[in-house]
């Protein structure tokens, strides 16, 4: 009965946002909508996934049609941004640096 009415979470409280909490001050990868990617150091985030990144590199991928062959050509343009605010609604995926378990 008790298990039915009250959800007992086993062990430490783990929610998806914990992954970000553990990545604070670390280099992260962010996949954004409209073929935009970011790599940078995570300084702050909130529940909307708004974020502040420093030493960020932005990669934008565009598809262009070759005028002669009509082939689709993927072009990536990169730029560095020293400090940047990211609005959370554009975020698709965030990947923290690969961590060695136990450290």
């Amino acid at each position: 009965m008790a298990e039915e009415t009250e959800q007992v979470i086993t062990g430490t409280v783990k929610e998806p946002l914990d992954l970000l909490r553990l990545s604070l001050d670390e280099q992260i990868y962010v996949k954004m909508r409209h073929d935009r990617e970011l790599r940078g150091r995570l300084h702050a985030y909130d529940q909307h996934l708004n974020m502040v990144l420093s030493e960020a590199e932005e990669t934008v991928t565009t598809i262009e049609i070759d005028e002669e062959t009509y082939e689709e050509v993927y072009k990536t343009t990169k730029r560095s941004i020293p400090m940047l605010f990211v609005r959370g609604d554009g975020v698709i995926l965030i990947s923290p640096p690969t961590r060695i378990p136990g450290i």
Partner: peptide
Amino acid sequence: KYGDAFIR
């Protein structure tokens, strides 16, 4: 491939 991933 990602070790860990957070998906919004």
